[in-house]
């Protein structure tokens, strides 16, 4: 059953050297060179100050920064207990970029040095873990892999979570990274717009597509 009172109260998109927060262009890297230098510029521009960022793989850096910009504009999670916040993210490529990097450390048997710090990122839900650690989120979390972004599925799944678990807010969306191609789109769903911030859109599949 779809809940009528669920709202999308914030959104953030990072793609093609741009950051868009609540439908407004907020940052553009004019001399774009590569994803690693772009995402570092975003990190420094917003003064995020979290040294562990530099140890993350590209997928986690992308999801982590998107979540920071989604949530930190108005400290959106401060009204909730740790186990009242859920996080449900999806993509199509899983952790393929890091999987290939890890494979490159083990494919040559005469130069066989498996990298522990690369290996730990060979699952896409590690990105969710990084966001949870940063924000002390302890509610429901899942990572789904589908060929294309599927707002109907996410909407249905998140409604079930609101109906059956403790969560009162949920971060959701799509975070994809593969060989310098990237797209990240996260939004916050709440029962009510507690902070009365930028967005107040009914949480429905067609509306998710509209803001993507």
């Amino acid at each position: 059953m779809l809940l009528k009172n669920l709202k999308i109260t914030s959104s953030c998109i990072i793609c093609f050297n741009k950051v868009i927060i609540n439908d407004k262009l907020d940052f553009v890297e004019k001399n774009y060179k590569s994803f690693p230098s772009f995402i570092k510029s975003v990190y420094r521009n917003y003064k995020i100050g979290y040294p562990k960022f530099f140890k993350m793989d590209n997928l986690s850096k992308l999801g982590f920064i998107t979540s920071e910009l989604l949530l930190k504009q108005d400290d959106l999670l401060s009204n909730y207990k740790n186990d009242e916040i859920g996080i449900i993210i999806s993509n199509s490529g899983s952790s393929i970029d890091t999987d290939i990097k890890y494979y490159n450390t083990i494919k040559d048997k005469s130069n066989y040095f498996p990298s522990p710090s690369v290996f730990v990122y060979t699952l896409p839900n590690i990105m969710i873990g990084e966001i949870c650690i940063r924000n002390k989120i302890m509610g429901e979390s899942s990572f789904f892999i589908s060929e294309k972004f599927n707002p109907d599925f996410l909407c249905n799944y998140i409604n079930i979570l609101f109906n059956t678990s403790k969560i009162k807010s949920c971060i959701s969306g799509w975070v994809e990274y593969e060989e310098n191609n990237y797209e990240s789109f996260l939004f916050l769903v709440e029962k009510e717009n507690k902070k009365n911030n930028g967005r107040n859109i009914n949480f429905e599949p067609e509306n998710i597509l509209m803001i993507k």
Binding site: F113, P114, S115, P116, S117, V120
Partner: peptide
């Protein structure tokens, strides 16, 4: 602990 493993790999490599 992951950093420790990475330093062990550095010493070997």
């Amino acid at each position: 602990s992951i950093d420790a493993l990475e330093l062990i790999v550095l010493l070997e490599k």
